[in-house]
Design a protein around this nucleic acid. Structure first.
Lengths: 200, 200
DNA sequence: GTCTATATAAGGATAGAC
DNA sequence: GTCTATCCTTATATAGAC
């Protein structure tokens, strides 16, 4: 791995652990094992390096989301797959946590990849929810975009609950609660989409 | 207001805006308009002052929650009142945002009031949800504690979505999505709890 | 390209005058 | 109780040697 890559990867780790304001160039350099000069050779400064790191984290997350939602199965199953995917819950979301960082939010450049990643997740989920509504899996009055936002919010908020309590339990509870609301009629039944009906 | 109170109030503001790692004693003193000596006279240091500030914020929030949930109305109405209460959405939650602060999470003392506040909110909502289930307002298969966690998570995550997008819209969408899931059968109908039936 | 040295400011706390 | 002065460390960046 190149020195430049080492810097980006180390920065990704530290941004995840401590956020932007909590991460110093010195901490990055020490953990990466490189000198000051290398960093300022490849990047103009802390912000520039953080931008590269956040961008890469966002790309990775989008790829993971696409992988989960592109897999087969009913709408409910794909949403369930997203909600139940393995996570380091107590570490929080490497993208979402940046929204609580004042310097990230204050910079349109740093916020852009965060916004793009969250928007992508919401949009992809909205399509799945709409498919579920159209296929009769979900209640017909549901607004796909609203439910998608609720799904993303439940996950992001689940991290908050878990970290507040110092335990992953609250995250799991929130996810279970949301899934139970998504399947109101038959909680334990296998859910097969009803066949398409002629629309007239 | 005493100097001590000025310090606490100013610290609450800054913790809300910038979190713990992003808030320096110097910034507090400048905004409060007091000298170094006063702070170190009343508090042992930054952490001690932050503890007082977080504790007060937590107490205020708990009082507000109780006020909302103690008010009359159906279970749905009280949950709706909590979800739709006026908020400075783009500022985030003054308690929840602290869970993303590495130094707060690393300190059991600083985390305690955060945990207590979130737990109180979850517990109070769980009681309301259970009342809604028992009264026939909500689907009988719902687990109150799980749904309560989903409600809190939707709000906390809604802040994340809103701040990522730089707009309050996503917060409102998530709340609408959750409310629509809570009222699956009759989205627009007025919801009157069905009368209690004898339990045997 | 990478390193060490240096510079300026800020973070966080102490000492002691008033 | 409150203030200013001082102290040591860290944050962030630049300069220049190799």
């Amino acid at each position: 791995m190149s020195t430049q890559d080492r810097l980006i990867e180390t920065t990704r780790e530290l941004l995840w652990e401590r956020g932007y304001v909590g991460t110093s160039p010195k901490a990055i350099l020490q953990r990466a094992g490189v000198g000051q000069g290398s960093m300022y050779h490849h990047f103009t400064g802390k912000g520039d390096l953080a931008l590269a790191a956040i961008t890469r984290t966002g790309e990775e997350m989008r790829a993971m989301i696409d992988g989960l939602l592109d897999a087969g199965g009913s709408a409910y199953e794909r949403i369930e797959a997203y909600l139940l995917r393995e996570r380091d819950v107590l570490r929080g979301c490497p993208v979402g946590r940046l929204t609580m960082d004042p310097d990230v939010i204050a910079s349109d450049e740093l916020r852009a990849p965060v916004e793009a990643t969250i928007a992508h997740l919401k949009d992809r989920l909205a399509v799945v929810v709409q498919e579920g509504v159209d296929g009769g899996e979900f209640a017909p009055h549901l607004v796909a975009a609203d439910v998608a936002a609720a799904i993303v919010a439940t996950v992001q908020g689940g991290y908050v609950l878990a970290r507040a309590a110092g335990s992953t339990d609250a995250f799991d509870m929130g996810v279970r609660g949301l899934l139970s609301l998504l399947s109101p009629s038959s909680p334990a039944a296998s859910r097969t989409p009803s066949p398409d009906l002629p629309k007239d």
